[in-house]
Design a protein around this nucleic acid. Sequence first.
DNA 1: GTGGATGCAAACTCTTTGCACCTTG
DNA 2: CAAGGTGCAAAGAGTTTGCATCCAC
Lengths: 123, 123
Amino acid sequence: MIRRTEQRYAIRRVLEHTVRPLTPQEVLEKAKATVPGLGIATVYRNLKVLHQDGILSTVEVPGAPARYEMANRGHRHHFQCESCNRVFDMPKSSFTPSALVPENFKVRDHQVLFYGFCPECSH
Amino acid sequence: MIRRTEQRYAIRRVLEHTVRPLTPQEVLEKAKATVPGLGIATVYRNLKVLHQDGILSTVEVPGAPARYEMANRGHRHHFQCESCNRVFDMPKSSFTPSALVPENFKVRDHQVLFYGFCPECSH
DNA sequence: GTGGATGCAAACTCTTTGCACCTTG
DNA sequence: CAAGGTGCAAAGAGTTTGCATCCAC
């Protein structure tokens, strides 16, 4: 049975109110505003549970911690800024690239990640 | 000035003779066949140099070390098996998804990764 | 009151770095 | 022989885990 704790609720609320994927560390800092004593281990434990339950989706980026965002935002492509390191959601698209995979591979999911400079960092 | 050492050559040769992206650990194990005393730090240092020189490309996968492969294989999409954790190259395709990114983001590169079960693990 | 959840610190994994020694050019 | 490269071990970063305590149910 899963309990409804103040920590879990705070962590979830942080992600519900953010429009870009966050690192565990970022989640911790934001959630501490509501639950000051919050520990990083609790953040990791809850992100894992929420991900396993399909509530969160993950975005992996090269040489940096994984990012998390609400799965109900739908499948997204992402963009990592090579200057500020933030990761952004791209607009939804109808691109379904599974057709590019040989038949004997069973595709369950996919991820598209762009690299470059975000608007703020490109001038 | 860059020197031609036995270790660097062995590391490079391992990657030239492999058809899927390898982890630093895998590179170490294979290269040790030629250079028994080889250390993991040397592998990391050389992978970094070879990557910076554009000779290798990297593939990042969730919750696992980065993989490296020869950049001259061309731009590839990849497939990670969720059972055996190996990463495979997909056939080349003409898919160029930069059109899916808003204009004010400057795209320099992109990566497509599929998850699922490879042929060997799907029966 | 019982079992899940938390916080802390220690443990772990992956990667980088400091340093003395070695090797290439 | 000078500068770059190597191997080892220690240090860092990110993540997980053990354990005593806490608290939601």
